[in-house]
Amino acid sequence: MMALFDVVLVFTLVLLAWRCVTVTDVFRAIVVFIVIGLLLGLAWARLEAPDLALAETAIGAGLLGVLLLGTWRALDAGERHACGHHRAPVPARWLAGIGSAGFGLAMLVALTSLDGHPGGAGELALNNLDAAGTEQPVTAVLLNFRSYDTLLEMGVVLMALIGALLCRAALTYQPRAEDVTVDTPLVPVLVTAFAPAVLLMGVYLVWAGTHSPGGAFQGGATLAGAGVLLVLGGRLHGVPHTALITRALLILGTVVFTAAGLLLIPLEGAFMAYPADFIYPIMLVIEYSLALSIALSLLLLFTGTHGLRRGES
């Protein structure tokens, strides 16, 4: 029964991906892309990766979807038309088709030829879980064994935000109200009903990350989702200037994470090594500060502004 479900799921995914890259209407391509994200969440939950299912639905489908739709709204009719009708010449498309089919086939052969895990890092990660300060193995890898990756990744998010802000920086352009808010009477009601629940879920997911599926990124993305709801409902507005608190929150995660790593060098002898007695509280502080910074960064990537202001709807 599950096998049949998997086959249908994979067939649908491939069909939708095909639609997404070939359909002319860009709006439909975006909608199909979002559906792909949701189905991937389902597939990854089937593949014993609930953390990733959460991350994909919240970040890959949800947040990126909202950003894509926002961009579509900002394009005028001519550009929307160009999105679908600007195609590579036919010979290039044929070459790309042959090349990518070959590439896909090679990938499939390689993935099939390799079964059986070579052990290594994965086994060690499970065996060293006791020393990691968390029961949740994904969180242990992200915040302890390979915390360096996670810290640098925060840098990537920050730099992407700087880039996005620079796109607006030289402009006298102010986001018009109708650019980001949705003008239907239902929205404020929905926002009032859902935003607190979504916020609460975000906070829960961050905390849950220490022992069950969840974590800073899923929780942060959910918090950002609550923020997006508030912006859409007109409860929050993007503003071109920035308050000190906004800036402080943006870098909080990176600074706390780096400071914990640097300050403990003399004690533990290595960057980002934590003393065993205090590891749980340290991890929790790092996780919450990361989640707050991620949430704010993603929200500002959505509004494309330096700051936020509360506003009446």
Partner: peptide, 9 residues
Amino acid sequence: LGGWEPPLG
């Protein structure tokens, strides 16, 4: 980094 040697760290 983190005092974890490869292959884990």
